[in-house]
Every structure is written in structure tokens, then in C-alpha cells.
């Protein structure tokens, strides 16, 4: 699978851009939290695309963002 780049994203409509990003980050999140992956991905897709691209290139920042999202989700559901 070729890397998702800013120029690749720029050629797609906004809704499609989020879809493309979601398809990339979902598998990573699913590895970490299989049951919450859909919701966590939905939350992270609210983040700016440029930051999402950075997170895809930097697994550490994606992981820390995922843990943040899990905490928010659990607080929301409590």
C-alpha cells in the first residue's frame, strides 16, 4: 500500500479525504483497541488532516492520541 501523502489527499473532496485517512488509521487503532477502534477512529477524524498525516508517519504520536481518545471516550460513557 502506497503511503498517503498530502498531495494525494489534496486531489480528493473533503469527505473522501477523511475516508482515506480513516482507512489508514483504523487498522493501527484496531491493533490497540479492537472493540473501540470504530469510535476512536471517528473521534480522531475530527482532527486536522495535516495532523492526521503526521500521526500516520509517527506511530508514537498516533498511539498517544489514541490513548487520549480512549480516556475521553471512557469519561464520556461514564
Amino acid at each position: 500500500q502506497e503511503p498517503l501523502t498530502a498531495s494525494l489527499l489534496a486531489g480528493a473532496p473533503p469527505q473522501e479525504q477523511k475516508q482515506m485517512l480513516g482507512e489508514r488509521i483504523y487498522p493501527v487503532i484496531h491493533e490497540m483497541h479492537p472493540t473501540l477502534a470504530g469510535k476512536i477512529t471517528g473521534m480522531l477524524l475530527e482532527i486536522d488532516n495535516s495532523e492526521l498525516l503526521h500521526m500516520l508517519e509517527s506511530p508514537e504520536s498516533l498511539h498517544s492520541k489514541v490513548e487520549e481518545a480512549v480516556a475521553v471516550l471512557q469519561a464520556h460513557q461514564a
Binding site: Q15, E23, G38, G42, M43, H76
Partner: peptide, 22 residues
């Protein structure tokens, strides 16, 4: 009030509707 439908859930291969209301 609390929004029980938040967050929108993403499913691979399914068009994501999360931005529809923006």
C-alpha cells in the same frame, strides 16, 4: 445535554458520515 451518538463510528470500507453536519 449529552450526545449518546457521539462519536461517529468509522467502519473500513463504509463511507464515513462524520462530517455530514459540518
Amino acid at each position: 445535554g449529552s450526545n449518546i451518538n457521539w462519536p461517529p463510528e468509522f467502519h473500513p470500507g463504509v463511507p464515513w458520515k462524520g462530517l455530514q453536519n459540518i
